[in-house]
């Protein structure tokens, strides 16, 4: 059985500046993983390459056994960015419809309704999300990322801008995602979140410096720059 996410010698550099050194990684299906590191450690670069949004400088990334960015990999993957992007002429509800249908979901409305209600966005469904505040935009992005089916979810800094209620709802949703059998890889600076996952990865200056159970790690020292 292929891993949910695997990388082989995956690397990225911007000119003469390496952002990620060659990385070999395997995340089995259903695993719940946190990715930590200081600012500029390569977390977002790794996630964006796995999502197919960044070109690799070397090596390869695979999602559910398929090369990142290919059609089957995109079917299996949901990407929740730290900088949500929306169409400026579609309401939140129209976003949900569009994205669910693009992923071949016919009965999306109930799921969308439930997500909006849990994220307290029910009364904003007909509003344009580009006009939302930072926190509401993040909630809208969460709903959009979860309205469609997926096997693997890559999440970049999901807690930024969320109020406590939003954080709690997100944690619940992520727990449900994990309980449903999907694989989660969450890049975060919220060290409290780290103890909810099965595996912890830490990057420092583009290199993997820790891969193991969160209980065995001194998380605070792992997020310090070299």
């Amino acid at each position: 059985m292929s891993a949910a996410l695997s990388t082989h010698q995956l690397s990225k550099d911007y000119g003469d500046r390496p952002a990620l050194f060659p990385l070999d990684l395997e995340v089995p299906k259903g695993q719940h993983v946190a990715l930590v590191g200081h600012n500029g450690s390569g977390k977002t670069t790794l996630l964006r390459m796995a999502a197919g949004l960044l070109d690799n400088s070397g090596g390869e990334a695979r999602i559910a056994g398929h090369l990142a960015g290919t059609q089957p990999a995109r079917t299996a993957l949901s990407w929740l960015s730290d900088t949500p992007t929306f169409y400026d002429d579609l309401s939140l509800w129209e976003h949900l419809e569009y994205i669910a249908r693009l992923h071949g979901v016919a009965d999306w409305a109930d799921t969308a309704e439930s997500l909006l209600s849990r994220l307290h966005l029910g009364d904003r469904r007909d509003d344009i999300p580009t006009t939302f505040s930072r926190g509401l935009r993040q909630k809208a992005a969460i709903a959009i990322a979860m309205v469609r089916p997926f096997e693997v979810m890559l999440v970049d800094e999901p807690f930024v801008g969320l109020d406590q209620a939003g954080k709690d709802t997100l944690l619940e949703l992520l727990d449900e995602v994990a309980a449903g059998g999907a694989t989660l890889l969450v890049a975060t600076h919220e060290l409290a979140f780290v103890h909810r996952v099965q595996r912890l990865l830490a990057l420092r200056d583009g290199a993997l410096v820790f891969d193991g159970a969160p209980a065995t790690a001194d998380v605070h020292s792992l997020v310090l720059p070299a």
Binding site: E97, R101, G104, A106, T111, S114, V147, P149, G180, A182
Partner: peptide
């Protein structure tokens, strides 16, 4: 929402793309 993804139905996706455009 969290079920493992079924194979996408391409034609409905394209019709969504056309419709939204």
């Amino acid at each position: 929402m969290t079920e493992v993804a079924p194979a996408a139905a391409p034609e409905s996706a394209y019709s969504a793309l056309r419709h939204l455009r």
